[in-house]
Design a protein around this nucleic acid. Structure first.
Lengths: 330, 330
DNA sequence: ATGAAAGCGCTAACAA
DNA sequence: TTGTTAGCGCTTTCAT
């Protein structure tokens, strides 16, 4: 593996000149620069990123903290992060935390010491202690999917509007009694959806029934299924469902199928996340699609701005809008 | 951020002693070691991995080359890799290649220069040039999901047996005419499944109909759907389907649903991959489950063996067996 | 415009 | 057992 020294020798200059030439610094004779570049090419020289990082105190790598990759919006977010990072010639380290604060803390503690230049935290969970402390140590962080407060950069969906619009749409389609299958209210995205749903109802002068709103402990298939079963048990004639996430929606669909209700004739459902999988189900779901890829991409771009000191030094919260995609559940 | 020097100063020893004490080397006085450890803790000292890597020519980082994370077995593989790597205190860099050899080559070229200690290539595609060249440069590589040949380490499923057993099972359940919806035959896993399927048929003395075997260009939802439509168009009375991957199976189910066939009464289906999502579908699929997580885990463990020079120096191909999980499609 | 030299934080060979 | 020292490959003052 060729080092800067080999290039210097071949080009008949000092290593410092090679460094200058290859990094497009001022004050290097065009001829010399060309000679250096040619030598570098000839030797297929690749700078040692460790050595450079040690000197520059910069690694051109970022860490992505995320609970999992599987069938959730986080896989799209991860793909977006990777894509934007690669564009800028950054590399991304994955840190699967299972949503466990201890694993998150261990990762942060290990990596912040000069193995990464910054962190993206993509999660819906609520604890924020480690993120805050990172922030206070001056290490660049950006949140994806959720916000904490206005002091830390974040890239999220306009959850409020997505839920508002979905509810309004269900109403427009003639639904008389709509239920919300939501996640835990200790997470801002779920709170916002809850509020959006209620506001849409209120704006139409509809009184809501608390029993039609289920804030499950967890956004999972099982919880979606159970929530729907509970709705059935209550014997009320729900004809519209707003599900906050894919897992919740898919779980609900399973219960609906078991009870032999026809979708969308007897019951309409809108899913507020809409990963690609929702298109492939036996009953393709109508969704307010959350652009996970774009969110990841923007989070990475913003993080790199923060790292490189370009762009707005003040925290910025970017909100994407969901797009309604009508399929067969409405 | 505390450096080794700070620790040395606090413990009143030389930096080399600190290094020895913290790395559990021989020949260090227990008292001194304790003093050093205490000082390190007090300062929350974390060794600078770049500096150590520069010296040791080792980064404790591995690269995972994979086409995508979304709804495919690769997300499980990635989770397995991350898990095993974290256990050994390694870190993993994700390299999403979209299956594009050029992106793969770019990643390899960038990272092999001392940013990673080795590579895991998780893909089903067929080209292997870059992997071979890595191997020939003496850089540790392990394949996951597919094999190339016996010269490079790999962790795979026993695809042959999975397809054989699934076919036999369908036959045992009374299917008279079974179709195989498979991926492209330039990929070893698909070839093996093809052979397993045929062998099971042959062992029962069943003549197969070539029209019942569809080797799609790509393992996608769309191809699964189209394959199934084609099977319907041929007007033959298929009563069993063996689908090689989730996407293919889910696509097939969509077509089956459209044609209003009852599953499993009129048509039984076994999916040969079985990611968690297949459990959540409206018709939960019976699967020969491919343990993606375990495969990723084992690939990472083997790679670390290779990196650290422990374990068998000869290439080893590990084959996991699929497990039949009966759900509602059989 | 170029070279000499220091130093990033660590490990390890050698000396004491 | 511990300290001294060199050096990993690079960037960047400071001289020239």
């Amino acid at each position: 593996m060729a080092t800067i020294r080999d290039v210097a020798k071949l080009a008949n200059v000092d290593v410092s000149t090679v460094s200058r030439a290859l990094n497009n610094k001022e004050n290097v004779n065009p001829d010399t620069r060309n000679r250096v570049i040619k030598a570098a090419e000839e030797l297929n020289y690749q700078p040692n990123i460790l050595a450079r990082g040690l000197k520059e105190r910069k690694t051109y790598t970022i860490a992505l903290l995320t609970p999992s990759f599987g069938t959730s919006v986080f896989s799209s977010v991860a793909e977006g992060v990777e894509s934007a990072a690669r564009e800028k010639d950054y590399t991304v380290i994955i840190c699967k935390t299972d949503g466990d604060p201890a694993i998150e803390a261990a990762y942060i503690n290990k990596l912040k010491n000069r193995l990464v230049d910054g962190f993206i935290s993509a999660t819906t969970t609520t604890h924020s202690y480690h993120i805050q402390s990172l922030k206070s140590e001056g290490i660049p962080v950006v949140l994806a999917v959720r916000t904490i407060d206005n002091t830390v950069d974040a890239v999220v969906l306009n959850y409020f509007k997505a839920a508002y619009d979905a509810t309004a749409l269900l109403l427009d389609r003639g639904c008389k009694s709509i239920a919300l299958i939501n996640g835990p209210l200790d997470s801002i995205p779920f709170v916002d959806r809850y509020r959006g749903h209620l506001k849409a109802l209120a704006d139409r002068g509809i009184l809501w029934d608390d029993r039609n709103i289920i804030n499950a402990d967890e956004s999972s298939f099982k919880n979606g299924l159970e929530a729907m079963e509970q709705l059935f048990m209550d014997q009320r004639s729900i004809d519209g469902i707003l599900a906050s996430t894919d897992a919740l929606a898919i779980g609900a669909m399973r219960a609906i199928r078991k009870h032999n209700l026809r979708v969308p004739e007897e019951l309409k459902l809108i899913d507020c996340t809409g990963n690609p999988i929702t298109e492939m189900l036996e009953t393709p779901l109508s969704v307010m699609e959350m652009p996970g890829f774009k969110i990841g991409q923007q989070a990475a771009r913003r993080l790199i701005e923060l790292i490189e000191g370009t762009g707005d030094p003040e925290p910025v919260i970017t909100r994407f809008e969901a797009e309604f995609i009508e399929r067969e559940s409405t």
